[in-house]
Design a protein around this nucleic acid. Structure first.
Length: 491
RNA sequence: CGGGAAGUGGCGCAGGUGGUAGCGCAUCUGGUUUGGGACCAGAGGGUCGCAGGUUCGAGUCCUGUCUUCCCGACCA
């Protein structure tokens, strides 16, 4: 009968996998490394999408769609880009199947070999810049501010639901600008958009920073990122925004004529977040009873469960429930009334806790007598009796409070798991576990960064944007350093 | 790609030395229940991943193959 989740303490990674499956978010499919996102999980993703999409449009972007397939030759045009992705590409080589001459089934028709192989996009810079070439002649054609919602494929060796799947859903923004300053400003603006969204809507605090040269996106001059800390003390990259310089413009010969009549290469950015955010959401807020959702992302913010004997009692309860639902919906709150007779109340309580519904209202015979309801909070697992008349004011207040509490709790956790390391001994000792964010001095070289990774498995998550200048010495080499960078073990 | 494990009803598993498949959960029916994952009684459902081979006979032995999961190097 024990349907309980593995606890986080017993096995964090097992807890995560069980939660994703039992809360009906996603499941593994018959396709290696590729998941099925189930309706409940997709409903959460849709809310993420809707909010981000609004923010993209408010910052002047429009959506477009580019092909899934990219000719192989496009890839080799930007050298560091191809280096970064070559080892994880799915390649289409044929376009036809035929009956297997040796028996049942079908085989690839060897005569249907493609002249040029097609790459299933791992990211779309190349096909997009090949297209932008046709769109841009003059400074009057700039800027181009485009986003696309799409699926991409990266042939990862080891996959995990939402965190790393061979195929994943994301959005990728690709912009073109006349000046370097404008492109950098765009990359920074989008980092702000991501920061606001992840903190305000997902209730996940993030560090903002720059990636080191070694961790930078393949083909970028600068990668801005937001980094979140998970409950097990490991870091998760939640979003990136890249200043691409003129690399792609040069690779695809995208020039424009400026006001002085001279030909110039276009400046570029790209930025993206993926279904990986679902993983961040789960690993930031959830507990041993299941998913905990911030109200702003919950497919249903409130669920009403009737407790009754017989049709007559159900009818009386339904009347109250319908009335409350009307009042809540009028305030823009999403409510579900679960009057199914096929499951018992206790079963429903557990199910909705597992699925992270922020507030649960139970109405039973006692409540009919007293004119009350039982209101239960998912985040604190506390219950209170509330007068039916007060529900429509109490619920919005509580939803706000839950949203705020979740963020604050995650922020407190991050602060409690952020520390400085001032010597190699200290650093090494910390990194024997998953200590969270460790602020330490670094000499600025990729060589040292790699050495530290080799020795401790810790990577530089970012060079914080708001870091104060501080003289110090590299934790490994003892060479001088002007500011601390953030180390952690990462997903 | 290197190391390990596993494929048997929807899910989780059991099936010494070969003899024609079983358990728990889930499902369905009837009844009693309903304030934290109900109970009783009955029922349905599997060519044992796939392809060969050995054998009178293969879930079991042999060969090949595919897939999935876990651990490492890579990554949003």
């Amino acid at each position: 009968m024990a349907k309980h989740l593995t606890t986080r303490e017993a096995d964090y990674s097992k807890w995560y996998n069980e939660l994703v499956v039992k809360a009906d978010l996603a499941q593994n499919s018959g396709v290696r490394g590729s998941m099925v996102i189930k309706p409940y999980g997709f409903a959460i993703w849709e809310r993420i999408q809707a909010d981000l999409d609004r923010r993209f449009k408010e910052t002047g972007h429009m959506n477009a769609y580019f092909p899934l397939f990219i000719p192989k030759s496009y890839f080799s045009k930007e050298a560091s880009h191809v280096d970064g992705f070559a080892k994880e590409c799915a390649v289409v080589t044929h376009y036809r199947l035929m009956d297997d001459p040796n028996g049942g089934g079908v085989v690839v028709d060897p005569s249907a070999k493609l002249e040029e192989e097609l790459i299933v996009r791992p990211t779309s810079e190349t096909i997009i810049w090949d297209t932008y070439k046709d769109w841009i002649q003059s400074y009057r054609d700039l800027p181009i501010l485009v986003n696309q919602w799409a699926n991409v494929v990266r042939w990862e060796m080891r996959t995990r639901l939402f965190l790393r799947t061979a195929e994943f859903l994301w959005q990728e923004g690709h912009t073109a600008h006349a000046t370097k300053q404008e492109a950098i400003a765009e990359a920074e603006t989008m980092l702000d958009v991501y920061t606001d969204f992840v903190q305000d809507v997902m209730a996940i605090p993030v560090l903002r920073g720059l990636k080191t040269e070694g961790e930078r996106f393949a083909g970028a001059l600068e990668t801005y990122c937001i980094e979140a800390l998970m409950q097990d003390g490991k870091a998760l990259q939640a979003g990136t925004s890249h200043f691409l310089g003129q690399n792609f413009a040069k690779a695809f010969e995208v020039k424009f004529q400026n006001k002085e009549g001279k030909q110039e290469y276009v400046w570029a950015t790209s930025w993206g977040v993926s279904t990986r955010l679902m993983g961040a959401l789960i690993m930031t807020h959830s507990d041993d009873n299941g998913l905990v959702l911030p109200p702003k992302l919950a497919p249903y913010q409130v669920v009403i469960v009737p407790i009754y004997k017989g049709q007559e009692q159900l009818d009386a309860i339904s009347e109250v429930a319908e009335d409350l639902m009307g009042q809540l919906r009028a305030k823009g709150i999403t409510v579900k009334y679960d009057n199914r007779d096929t499951h018992k109340p206790g079963w429903k309580f557990n199910q909705y806790e597992l699925q992270g519904i922020p507030l649960r209202i139970a109405i039973g015979p006692k409540d009919l007598e007293k004119g009350s309801v039982e209101l239960a909070r998912r985040d604190t697992l506390t219950k209170q009796f509330v007068d039916q008349k007060e529900v429509s004011t109490k619920v919005p207040e509580l939803l706000d409070e839950i949203q705020h509490t979740l963020f604050q709790k995650a922020l407190d956790f991050r602060e409690a798991h952020s520390q400085e390391a001032n010597s190699w001994e200290e650093f090494e000792t910390l990194m024997k576990g998953n200590p969270g964010f460790v602020y330490a001095h670094w000499d600025g070289t990729t060589e040292t960064e790699n050495k530290i990774k080799e020795l401790t498995k810790a990577t530089i998550r970012c060079i914080p944007l708001d870091a104060k200048e501080e003289d110090g010495v590299c934790v490994l080499t003892g060479k001088p350093s002007k500011q601390r960078v953030v180390f952690a073990k990462a997903y």
